[in-house]
């Protein structure tokens, strides 16, 4: 289990997180949602160990991260960054192979090669393996990093302790079209179904509601509520957390909730929307 207990983070006099408690079990996908600036990315960085909380601690299988070796931690959890940037001409395979670096000297070359190939197949970038990273599109780059973090926590011949690994995904759907958004989320989901934990920061409550086992709603640096999608994604919560009016329906096939922004009931009436469409510069003769 990867767990953060009573986390407080202050930076430059601002409280970024106050008393946050969050955990993820093997086999579970937890979505972090909340408005911009709610502290989602900060919490993810605390969970990863990159940000040391001012108070509180993060534990991996009941051992504090601070008591573990950095490489040891890196073999058990990987982090997909929000804005991956790299201007140097590494090939796609080179970048994915970097994921295996915490296993250097422990995992065999052939096992690494197999894991790297499998990770590239899983994210659908096998055909790009020899391309130089800077020549890729934003969506392709995102998938390269997804493959890299999958390779990082894949079991080689060096560790078969049967314990879950953890993926922390910071807005993995950024820059992706709808199909690739779904693909990225499903990749994470498959990973969790293999007995691993996933924490994913999402902007779209519908993606969270559609895929997560549990949703944690963060507002103003504190947990507003958490629970299964049916309990969390409600009209009241969307108004309280995001300040939006929305209707919540049920997906008839999965039974999961989804929201539809209620444009009509706010400033824009159907009539004014029709008018604005008519007067848009593109449609004028």
């Amino acid at each position: 289990m990867l767990a953060a207990a009573d986390i407080h983070v202050r930076r430059a006099g601002r409280r970024l997180l106050t008393g946050v408690r969050v955990c993820v079990e093997p086999g579970e996908t937890v979505a972090l949602i909340g408005p911009n600036g709610a502290g989602k990315s900060t919490l993810l960085h605390v969970l990863s160990g990159a940000i040391r909380p001012d108070y509180g601690s993060v534990t991996l299988n009941r051992t504090p991260l601070t008591a573990l070796d950095d490489k040891e931690v890196a073999r058990h959890r990987a982090v997909l960054p929000q804005t991956p940037e790299l201007g140097f001409p590494l090939t796609v395979r080179d970048v994915v192979a970097l994921g295996r670096s915490p296993h250097a000297g422990r995992s065999s070359r052939s096992a690494d090669a197999r894991i790297i190939a499998a990770a590239m197949d899983e994210t659908g970038i096998g055909h790009l393996r020899h391309r130089l990273y800077p020549t890729l599109s934003g969506g392709e780059r995102q998938r390269v990093h997804l493959a890299r973090v999958l390779a990082q926590v894949a079991d080689g011949d060096d560790q078969a302790d049967g314990r879950g690994r953890y993926l922390l995904l910071d807005e993995p759907t950024n820059n992706l079209d709808i199909a690739h958004q779904q693909h990225a989320i499903e990749t994470g989901l498959r990973f969790s179904r293999r007995g691993n934990g996933v924490v994913v920061v999402l902007h779209d409550p519908n993606l969270a509601a559609g895929y997560a086992d549990r949703i944690v709603v963060l507002v103003g640096g504190a947990v507003l509520t958490e629970g299964p999608p049916e309990a969390v994604v409600t009209e009241e919560l969307l108004r309280e957390a995001f300040g939006v009016r929305a209707m919540v329906h049920r997906n008839p096939s999965s039974g999961r909730p989804f929201m539809v922004p209620n444009h009509g009931s706010s400033a824009m009436t159907p009539d004014s929307r029709a008018k604005s469409q008519r007067s848009s510069p593109c449609s004028s003769p």
Binding site: H45, S48, G49, A50, D69, D70, K71, E72, V73, A74, R75, A78, V79, P81, P84, E85, L86, F88, L90, V95, L98, G99, S101, P102, Q152
Partner: peptide, 13 residues
Amino acid sequence: LLGETEALHLGFP
């Protein structure tokens, strides 16, 4: 090259 945070996440000192 990936960034300092990414290197940290990969377990590099």
